[in-house]
């Protein structure tokens, strides 16, 4: 579940300049699934609940996207089905946590187990065959160097994510739905007194978050690394929880945070490819140390983190 991410792009041919190039392209490639899964988690957490189970949703999404793309030949259909499968898992989390006395953190960890177990079970037949992949937008057309060209292959899903982040920010800040969602996240009593059903709103938010996590999984299996196997996810679903805190529950900041997390994951392999053989493993820990640093710096015994929904038990 938490193995290291493979080397990003083979840039050894162009020397030391390969490092920033690999980090930039890695930020986008590794960052895209982070972006989708963190936007989903952000939406869920804004409603006052945490879904730790997005790791299972992600793996389930990756498997179903690969299977559907293999059978239908359409990668985009795979993305859609991955999102729908993710919504089902999200709805399951949302419904179970609506029951009294059920702990959302524990249900999340149970859903990691269920989602990855189901994905590995059902996905066994798809480890060997090759499915249709998502197309890439070739931003490196101007270069004659194959290393540069391969590093600048941008996936259309990244563009979707790029647009989705401000769109979700707008939805939360400027629309009636967003206001209801934030009210439920800030004070369930206030929302209830206004006649909104708190558990329903949270279940819907968790379902939408599950959809985005499923899409993140489809990126893993259909673009980068671009295959289905049991070591596909390196814990992006769980990291999303850290990432949302790092982004202080702001969708646009989720975009920058996802790129940063992606870049730091790409830095190790990139350094390795130019001969740095030791110490690069510690770069994998940089996002977590940074997140921890932010939490320590901005928390206090009497105050919440800036931007944090008040109903969020896990961050209280």
């Amino acid at each position: 579940m938490m193995s290291a991410i493979d080397p990003v792009a083979d840039v050894t041919g162009i020397g030391v300049w390969g490092v920033p190039l690999a980090v930039a392209s890695g930020a986008v490639r590794i960052g895209t699934p982070f972006l989708f899964v963190s936007l989903g988690e952000c939406l869920t957490e804004k409603s006052g609940r945490v879904n730790l189970g997005l790791e299972g949703t992600l793996v389930m999404g990756a498997m179903s996207a690969y299977a559907i793309s293999y059978y239908s030949g359409s990668a985009w259909l795979g993305v859609l089905v991955a999102g729908l499968v993710g919504s089902v898992l999200g709805a399951l989390h949302g419904w179970l946590c609506s029951l009294p006395r059920v702990n959302d953190v524990a249900i999340g960890i149970a859903l990691i187990s269920l989602g990855t177990g189901l994905a590995f079970f059902l996905g066994k037949p798809f480890i060997q065959p090759s499915a249709t992949k998502l197309p890439a937008i070739d931003l490196g057309f101007w270069s004659s160097s194959p290393e540069v060209r391969s590093a600048l292959q941008i996936n259309a899903l990244f563009v979707v994510g790029l647009l989705l982040a401000p769109a979700i920010a707008f939805l939360l800040a400027r629309t009636r739905w967003g206001l209801v969602l934030r009210t439920v996240g800030e004070s369930s009593d206030a929302a209830r007194s206004m006649g909104y059903r708190v558990n329903t709103v949270r279940a819907i938010a968790t379902t939408c978050g599950g959809f985005l996590a499923g899409v993140a999984g489809s990126f893993l299996s259909l673009f980068y690394p671009g295959s289905w196997n049991e070591r596909l996810s390196s814990g992006q679903g769980l990291m999303a929880v850290a990432l949302v805190i790092f982004a202080q529950w702001n969708p646009v900041r989720c975009l920058w945070a996802a790129l940063l997390f992606g870049a730091s994951s790409a830095l190790g392999p990139a350094l390795q490819s130019v001969g740095v053989s030791s110490g690069y493993q510690l770069f994998n820990a940089v996002p977590y140390v940074l997140t921890l640093g932010i939490m320590i710096a901005t928390s206090s015994a009497s105050r919440r983190l800036p931007g944090q929904p008040a109903e969020l038990t896990v961050a209280r």
């Binding site: 938490m2 805190i245 510690l282 820990a285 921890l292 939490m295 320590i296 896990v314 209280r316």
Partner: peptide, 24 residues
């Protein structure tokens, strides 16, 4: 206890930091 940092999140983060230290 002293900074009000949520222990669920911090222990989750420490899991990843521990794994990175192990591989280092």
């Amino acid at each position: 206890a002293y900074r009000g940092v949520n222990e669920t999140i911090s222990t989750l983060l420490f899991n990843y930091i521990a794994i990175a230290l192990l591989s280092y």
